[in-house]
């Protein structure tokens, strides 16, 4: 689920930025540092919407750097166990399928796919009912329930970093959510089959 929340962060700034544009510098640094990051507590920070307050700076002894406490509003995406949401299937294999709901990846194991759906290999691997009426394949839209969340450490991040914009500093993604989902329950499953459109 997406939320609009207020977060706080201490921004450390080099003295060369002190001047007329101090506020702009703090805000642009905040956006670079925070947007796109993820924490186990607040989930993914999608976008900063406004800066509520920039507190009085505190000079760090011996360095000349100044720390400013900054309060800002942002849109976050935080998945919860038990939450039901819609997602797009990104990969299908015999173990199950992966789906994406915004920034989060959700794996649905074949044990959590209804028993009447069988795996079909081929160019377009899919799960299909015996009468062929329902099919799950790449790009299908499914409604699923999250039954477990996990916050991954940095290792997985290295794979993701290749497609990340250049300015995005390494290590600003200290963690990443990963979810396990099910479609084996009432009112869950495919909501739209890409082949029928």
């Amino acid at each position: 689920m997406f939320f609009h929340i207020v977060l706080e962060r201490n921004m450390q700034l080099h003295p060369r930025h002190f001047g007329r544009n101090l506020r702009e510098h703090i805000i642009s640094k905040l956006m670079k540092d925070v947007e796109g990051t993820c924490s186990g507590r607040h989930g993914f920070v999608v976008a900063i919407t406004s800066v509520e307050n920039i507190g009085k700076g505190l000079i760090r002894d011996g360095t000349g750097f100044v720390t400013f406490p900054v309060k800002y509003q942002c849109v976050v995406f935080r998945p919860f166990k038990g939450e039901i949401l819609e997602a797009v299937v990104s990969m299908v294999n015999k173990m199950g399928f992966f789906a994406e709901a915004g920034p989060v990846q959700i794996f649905v194991s074949n044990h959590l796919i209804p028993d009447d759906m069988e795996f079909q290999s081929g160019d377009m691997p899919n799960y299909t009912t015996s009468d062929g009426s329902v099919k799950i394949q790449k790009d299908s839209e499914v409604r699923l329930k999250i039954i477990g969340t996990r916050v991954d450490a940095t290792e997985i991040d290295k794979n993701i970093s290749q497609s990340r914009p250049k300015w995005d500093p390494a290590g600003s993604h200290p963690s990443r959510f990963f979810c396990i989902g099910t479609i084996k329950d009432d009112f869950l499953g495919v909501i739209n089959d890409p082949t029928t459109i």
Binding site: V46, A47, V88, G102, P103
Partner: peptide
């Protein structure tokens, strides 16, 4: 699109779709 994070891009695509 080069200015935004992957999280932003994916979220935008997702909410547009749903």
């Amino acid at each position: 699109m080069n200015q935004v994070s992957q999280v932003f891009e994916k979220s935008l695509q997702y909410v547009k779709r749903f």
